[in-house]
């Protein structure tokens, strides 16, 4: 139990009559990179604001690094680095002034401050812009400054609210690899509504929807929750009509749905859903051989997190 860095129990937050976070329970172990996933307005930011002691929970408890976020808020705040949503920074300061200010507010000694700023500046790629005003930097650099201020005191826990929102694809890749590297030694919680992001950076995913926790697991675990699998088949049927092919394919045991999709000229393409998780590829291949169709393509598409996400956050069937 000693490596549990964040312990959240029945955490609840009401804004007036609206319940933003509804009895959320989870825990994060040391060294995990936890992706907090959910549609906009699901309660991600609110949960993070409670973990960082900015807001007090209406109900439930949260312990960060062993300290209660409400009763021992100063101890919690000493041990976390936080990047709020939209990266608010003091734009009228230069990068090095800003990082110095952060270190001073955190009460660091001047030697430690200097060495940490140097170290973190190099890691976040800020050495060249140290003398520039924060407000004059590009969004990607501002995001790096935001990360640098969150790590200047070498915290055990990083809480990052949408660290890559509004960045271009190159910047996103940079920030992600930075987070991944940091995640090797620290506990990281990051929120996002971008799915590839969690797949790329996170070792564990929490999906939150309407203030409630709806899923908790590794990306693989969540993907495997998706029942059945989908195949894409393209055949040349040697004169047989597409409908006949479709009827044959649809008649195979285990197939729940067979649909024509647009394919190449002279060929028939189908998207097939199967109930069972058994491999249907052999059976589909057999069917093609038996019917003397020329098989041009046969792919099993693995379920992706997008389906899981849509399924969990809208309650609609992902494949109907």
């Amino acid at each position: 139990m000693t490596d549990v860095m964040i312990q959240v129990e029945n955490l609840t937050k009401d804004y007036g009559p609206t319940r933003a976070v509804d009895s959320v329970t989870f825990s994060v172990r040391k060294g995990e990179v936890l992706g907090f996933l959910g549609p906009n307005g699901a309660g991600k930011s609110t949960t993070m604001k409670m973990l960082t002691c900015f807001l007090a929970p209406t109900g439930g408890h949260a312990r960060v690094a062993g300290f209660d976020v409400f009763d021992e808020s100063l101890e919690v705040r000493k041990r976390i680095g936080y990047l709020p949503e939209d990266t608010p920074l003091y734009r009228d300061m230069t990068v090095s002034e800003f990082l110095t200010f952060t270190a001073d507010v955190r009460g660091m000694t001047s030697e430690r401050r200097e060495s940490r700023i140097k170290d973190i500046g190099a890691r976040c790629g800020l050495a060249d812009v140290a003398g520039k005003l924060v407000g004059e930097l590009s969004k990607g650099f501002r995001q790096r400054v935001g990360l640098a201020q969150a790590m200047v005191h070498d915290p055990d826990i990083l809480i990052l609210d949408e660290p890559t929102s509004g960045l271009d694809p190159n910047q996103i890749v940079e920030i992600r690899s930075l987070i991944k590297e940091v995640g090797k030694e620290k506990t990281v919680i990051l929120s996002t509504h971008i799915l590839p992001e969690v797949q790329a950076t996170c070792s564990r995913i929490l999906i939150i929807s309407g203030g409630k926790l709806v899923a908790d697991g590794t990306p693989d675990e969540l993907r495997s929750r998706e029942k059945g699998s989908r195949y894409r088949v393209v055949v040349e049927s040697n004169g047989v009509g597409g409908d006949a092919v479709k009827a044959k394919l649809g008649g195979i045991a285990g197939v729940t749905r067979c649909e024509s999709v647009t394919g190449e000229e002279g060929a028939h393409a189908f998207s097939i859903d199967a109930q069972v998780s058994d491999d249907l590829r052999k059976i589909l291949f057999r069917a093609a051989v038996d019917n003397r169709w020329t098989l041009l393509e046969l792919v099993r598409e693995s379920a992706n997190l997008e389906d899981v996400f849509r399924n969990l956050t809208t309650g609609e069937e992902p494949r109907s």
């Binding site: 604001k49 100063l74 705040r77 709020p84 939209d86 920074l89 952060t102 507010v105 955190r106 201020q149």
Partner: peptide, 14 residues
């Protein structure tokens, strides 16, 4: 207004 207050008061200060 700019949100920096959140940054500031989530640092360990009173």
């Amino acid at each position: 207004g700019s949100g920096t207050l959140e940054l500031l008061i989530t640092m360990p200060i009173k």
